[in-house]
Design a protein around this nucleic acid. Structure first.
Length: 491
RNA sequence: GUCCCCAUCGUCUAGAGGCCUAGGACGUAGCCCUCUCACGGCUAAAACCCGGGUUCGAAUCCCGGUGGGGACGCCA
């Protein structure tokens, strides 16, 4: 019986949840669920200088919003806590001391200034920059003296020479590093906090992590971690390094180029199901031709062997397409619940408006299938709540020629008599009118649409009119006629 | 500078030596449907980075180049 799968997502609370981090979390989640394992959230807050207020809440919220709840971690607990590294300092100190006692690590008293200088000289000489190991050679007496004087020091791993350090990456295959290019990495900082390397290895071991799935910027650290596991006498977990996500220009994804965080996409009106589906397909696919899949279907089909090692560009146009697919899947109630706060924010409706309102339901029903994002649904509903402030320019040029004023007045008078005021009767009226005038119905429909909505596109005209209601529709048509007359006077 | 990773249409990708006349999706163009938009249907243009090898046969394996990315912190 193999060990149960345990994986972790280990962000540090330095800001928002980056979309690349979200994808790493997603793949961890999918891997855990696929194998019936455990998805753990651990907070790597061992750098006191980089802590950002509010970052934790944003990370928690983003993960939950995306649909990636963790089985163990902050706020949910678990048998291997605490899950904040800042609350585990004693554990790291003990392990570092153990390594020093066994000679696998040593104290280094070099000042940051000296290290800087060594590094600069190495850069100038164009050789690999690494610690020159000066404190390895310290005699016991010298060390004693420095210790007694209270000299600040760090603890470094004693990296062996001439070793080939190998690991089998689940996505990339075998990767080998010569230990000679590896540094004597710092394990414990002079402030007593562990470095990422120490905390990470100790926690992964203590928390029984079986698979480490992380971003590929960690590949170069992995051989050092392997050596650390060896120093402790522990078996390392299996590693898999995920490719990065790039922006359309091929560079890093950043705020400056648009959206970079989960929150950015949320604000832009994307649905979590769509973002999750899309992110899963960045570097992975089920091996058949499905693309729109639920979280559960993805969990079922997921496998690390199908993950592509190549960095992927996030194509926002395709994300929009996928989001549109999910907008159409939304029920009217779901769509309304999501868009209602946006309408309130835009003051289209009062703060007291509720989802039970049949007018709002009708608007949402008409618009959700033709909106790519929630924000688009929110914006495109404007004319259902207020008169069009202006008419789409290109369309006005085409539909609002001078003679359209009289036409709209005639149509308005005809519309006034339609009863019941529903889309079927309206359509019947328009078709009859078109026939008696010997023109195509489109000739009547387009100017009416522009008069009523201000736009050249949207839901079926008769449905739209029915929803807005007779009085407002007629008023808008007459107002458009006036507008046309005032325009032709200007000329 | 050293080390490491990566390389199929514009983008996401299928492809595990013959099934490849390289398939799908987004996007683009055209046509159909149609009151517009969206949806849907049909069609088209569009890729194996380059060079060597291995093999009867290579997008697929090996080597070298080139290009892109990453690491080289008392950051994670």
């Amino acid at each position: 019986m193999p060990e149960p799968v345990r994986v972790r997502f280990a962000p540090s609370p330095t800001g928002y949840l980056h979309i690349g981090g979200a994808r790493t979390a997603l793949f961890n989640f999918l891997f855990a669920r696929h194998h019936g394992g455990t998805f753990i959230l651990r907070i790597e807050d061992t750098d006191r200088t980089r802590y950002q207020e509010g970052a934790l809440q944003e990370i928690f919220e983003s993960l939950r919003w995306l649909g990636l709840p963790w089985d163990e971690g902050p706020e949910v607990g678990g048998p291997f806590g605490p899950y904040f590294q800042s609350e585990r300092l004693e554990i790291y100190r003990r392990h570092a001391a153990d390594l020093v006692a066994r000679g696998a690590a040593y104290r280094c008293f070099c000042t940051p200034e000296r290290l800087d200088q060594v590094r600069k000289e190495q850069e100038k000489a164009k050789v690999t920059t690494k610690y020159d190991r000066r404190c390895r050679a310290l005699s016991q007496g010298e060390e004693r003296k420095l210790l007694d004087a209270g000299t600040p020091h760090v603890v470094r791993l004693r990296v062996p020479d001439g070793r080939a350090v190998m690991f089998d990456d689940l996505i990339r295959g075998e990767i080998v590093y010569q230990s000679d290019v590896l540094d004597d990495l710092v394990l414990l900082k002079s402030d007593g906090y562990p470095t990422y390397h120490l905390a990470n290895v100790v926690d992964d071991h203590l928390m029984r992590i079986t698979h480490v799935l992380r971003g590929d910027e960690w590949i170069a650290s992995t051989p050092r971690h392997i050596l650390l596991y060896e120093a402790f006498g522990w078996a390392p977990p299996v590693f898999a390094h995920m490719p990065v996500i790039l922006s359309p220009d091929g560079g890093k994804l950043s705020k400056r180029k648009g959206a970079a965080s989960v929150t950015d996409y949320r604000r832009a009106g994307y649905l979590p199901q769509a973002l999750l589906n899309f992110l899963a397909f960045l570097g992975w696919n089920p091996g058949d031709e499905r693309e729109v899949m639920t979280r559960e279907e993805i969990v079922h089909a997921f496998g690390l062997e199908k993950v592509n090692p190549k960095a992927a560009v996030l194509d926002e146009v395709k994300l929009e397409w996928m989001n549109h697919e999910y907008m159409r899947k939304l029920t009217i109630d779901e769509a309304l619940a999501l868009v209602l706060p946006m309408w309130k924010g835009r003051e289209f409706v009062g703060a007291g408006a509720t989802a039970a309102d049949s007018y709002l339901r009708a608007v949402a029903a008409q618009l959700k299938d033709r909106s790519k994002r929630l924000t688009e649904l929110a914006d495109n509903a404007a004319y259902f709540f207020r008169e069009p402030g202006e008419y789409e320019e290109a369309a006005a040029k085409k539909q609002f020629k001078p003679e359209a004023a009289a036409l709209l007045c005639d149509l308005a008078s005809a519309v006034e008599t339609v009863a019941p005021f529903d889309h079927a009767s309206l359509e019947e009226k328009y078709r009859a009118l078109a026939e008696s005038r010997g023109v195509g119905a489109a000739k009547l429909i387009h100017p009416t649409r522009l008069a009523v909505s201000g736009l050249s596109y949207g839901p079926g005209l008769f449905e739209l009119m029915e929803i807005i209601g007779k009085d407002k529709v007629v008023a808008r048509m007459r107002r458009a006629a006036e507008w046309i007359r005032s325009q032709s006077q200007k000329d």
